[in-house]
């Protein structure tokens, strides 16, 4: 039994998808267990909100379950899941756009929010408060705030690359964009993040 279980744990994504397409619930659960953390973490970094991230992660797996029959081998399971999650995120941002405009905060992008020309509000210069600069939690909060200020397209590419560890080619497949666009988005995102996080880069 233990041996069989260990075999299941090491089963490839392709085998799991194949089993899942035959309505094998155990295979579906295995996929959820394998990817829920990465999808949740991506969505948390995208939304900046635990509740939204949880809800969208749930929805990602519901979409995966209902659409497993249409899965094609031109993508890996991870790129497919990130694509579903990304699309759900875009839908969610569209739905919340009005509300975000009304309650603009430090976290919300400003008008004229496109991926090449964007401006953001200033964050307080934390170098003036040295006792908090090196606090890891505080730093993580500042990075999240800086991420939230990026246009969603740039944010998605840089999160997938630098946080989730996807290669440029995988991001191109997951986001359905050319490789050159992926590279320029990551470059622009890093430059913007560098400008916001300068006090922490010393």
């Amino acid at each position: 039994m233990t041996f069989a279980r260990s075999l299941n744990l090491t089963q490839s994504d392709t085998a799991l998808i194949s089993r899942c397409q035959k309505a094998d619930i155990a295979a579906f659960n295995e996929i959820v267990g394998r990817y829920k953390g990465r999808i949740y973490n991506y969505l948390y970094r995208m939304t900046g909100n635990a509740e939204d991230a949880e809800d969208l992660t749930q929805e990602t797996f519901v979409r995966m379950y209902t659409g497993i029959a249409s899965f094609r081998a031109d993508a890996t399971l991870s790129t497919w899941l990130f694509r579903i999650a990304g699309n759900l995120c875009v839908d969610s941002f569209r739905r919340n756009k009005k509300a975000r405009e009304l309650t603009r905060s430090l976290d919300a992008p400003l008008p004229g929010d496109d991926e090449n020309h964007f401006v953001t509000q200033d964050i307080p210069d934390m170098s003036q408060a040295p006792e908090t600069v090196f606090a890891r939690k505080e730093l993580a909060g500042q990075i999240q705030q800086a991420l939230q200020k990026l246009p969603p397209k740039l944010r998605s590419s840089v999160v997938l690359h630098d946080i989730e560890g996807l290669a440029y080619e995988e991001i191109a497949i997951a986001e359905g964009i050319p490789l050159g666009t992926v590279k320029s988005r990551i470059f622009n995102a890093r430059v913007a993040l560098r400008d916001h996080l300068k006090p922490y880069l010393q």
């Binding site: 948390y44 949880e54 922490y200």
Partner: peptide, 26 residues
């Protein structure tokens, strides 16, 4: 150097996990 450090800051961010009853809700 700054771009490299920026990328490292992102890589070192703590990983977040969904709630413990994620599977039950799903």
């Amino acid at each position: 150097q700054e771009l490299s450090r920026t990328a490292n800051l992102l890589r070192e961010l703590p990983k977040w996990e969904p709630s413990v009853n994620f599977e039950a809700i799903l």
